[in-house]
């Protein structure tokens, strides 16, 4: 029995610090009149995002003798937007999110996410609020902001919005990614490769750094920018080598959203991945009317890693997947 790893992967002292971070987050939102909600971890619908793998299970019981397929949520986004469409106003949630195939120094397949929505905010106003939260939790300086395009221009001397596939492949080869580049037929995975490997380690080292105006092709659930349709109202936050948050000026157009889901599924087919049924409850809520709003998801485990100066995610969660 001595061989069995029963003890937590985090120190008890760290778990106390974690509790203090959670308490600070809750008081931060209480002061701002943003209230806490809870939405299901198990949902009948899943996400079409080609880079997210979900866990699934089924409910068997009254009314569902044959079993009801259910998916563990990769984020509470769709359910929270249904609350917004129902008139919730500003809300936040601290919940577990589940992502299959993800495990490592910065990833655990089950992790804790802080997600919040601000009706009437655009992405810039929301970045201000995230900045305030960061300063409150980490006592860090005000964050820096740089556009996705400027980051590529500054660190790699290329323009991610105009570069052609062949030139991009050549740049990847220069940085030692020839094998990956040779196989690629689209721009985005290569931009993501260069961003992760060559830009991310250079930004946000001393102060947090927001990268905004992601390319339209990586808009996910963000609105396109009205002045420049090549970019979207999507941003991310980086600090000390970690991606901490991803936020959107939220797409409110149901038709456009449905089209993006279809495009995801088309891409899934090309990648030999199973297609995923669109979340019709979410689309119906958008159709009913989602107020103009900005929203963001922030990884609490990573935030606690920064607050407690830990190197691995398992050091800030009670039991990582190996011990779960």
């Amino acid at each position: 029995m001595n061989e069995v790893k029963w003890a937590p992967s985090a120190q008890i002292e760290t778990l106390k610090q974690r509790a203090a971070v959670l308490a600070s987050i809750r008081s931060f939102f209480a002061e701002r009149d943003v209230y806490e909600v809870e939405t299901p971890s198990l949902s009948q619908a899943s996400v079409t995002d080609v880079h997210l793998a979900t866990f699934s299970t089924q409910f068997v019981g009254p009314s569902y003798a044959q079993g009801l397929p259910l998916y563990l949520q990769t984020s509470p986004e769709f359910a929270m937007k249904r609350l917004l469409a129902a008139g919730s106003g500003a809300i936040y949630q601290i919940s577990k999110a589940f992502r299959n195939e993800e495990s490592g120094r910065h990833h655990n397949p089950e992790f804790t996410m802080l997600e919040w929505y601000r009706p009437g905010f655009d992405e810039h106003l929301l970045m201000d609020e995230i900045d305030a939260l960061m300063q409150c939790i980490l006592s860090c300086d005000k964050a820096q902001r740089i556009s996705y395009q400027a980051a590529f221009q500054q660190y790699l001397s290329i323009d991610p919005l105009t570069i052609e596939l062949e030139s991009l492949k050549a740049v990847c080869a220069e940085y030692g990614y020839k094998d990956i580049a040779d196989e690629e037929t689209t721009i985005d995975p290569l931009l993501q490769l260069l961003f992760c490997m060559e830009i991310e380690p250079q930004i946000g080292q001393d102060i947090p750094c927001f990268v905004y105006h992601f390319p339209a092709s990586q808009a996910a659930l963000a609105k396109l920018n009205e002045q420049d349709k090549r970019v979207a109202g999507r941003f991310e936050l980086y600090y000390k080598g970690m991606e901490l948050a991803n936020g959107f000026n939220e797409l409110t157009d149901a038709e456009e959203q449905s089209k993006r889901f279809d495009e995801d599924n088309l891409q899934r087919q090309q990648m030999n991945l199973p297609t995923v049924d669109k979340d019709m409850r979410f689309l119906a809520a958008l159709d009913q009317g989602l107020p103009n709003c900005a929203g963001v998801a922030l990884g609490i485990d990573r935030l606690v890693m920064l607050a407690t100066d830990k190197r691995e995610i398992k050091e800030v969660i009670a039991f990582d997947i190996e011990r779960a």
Partner: peptide, 27 residues
């Protein structure tokens, strides 16, 4: 494993070549 919240995942590995003894990174 290096994976953005939205986007392609990569594995960055450090390897030792067994004949030359060279240590290098590969993605």
């Amino acid at each position: 494993m290096v994976k953005p919240g939205k986007g392609q995942a990569f594995n960055r590995v450090k390897i030792r070549k067994l004949i030359s003894g060279k240590v290098l990174e590969k993605t």
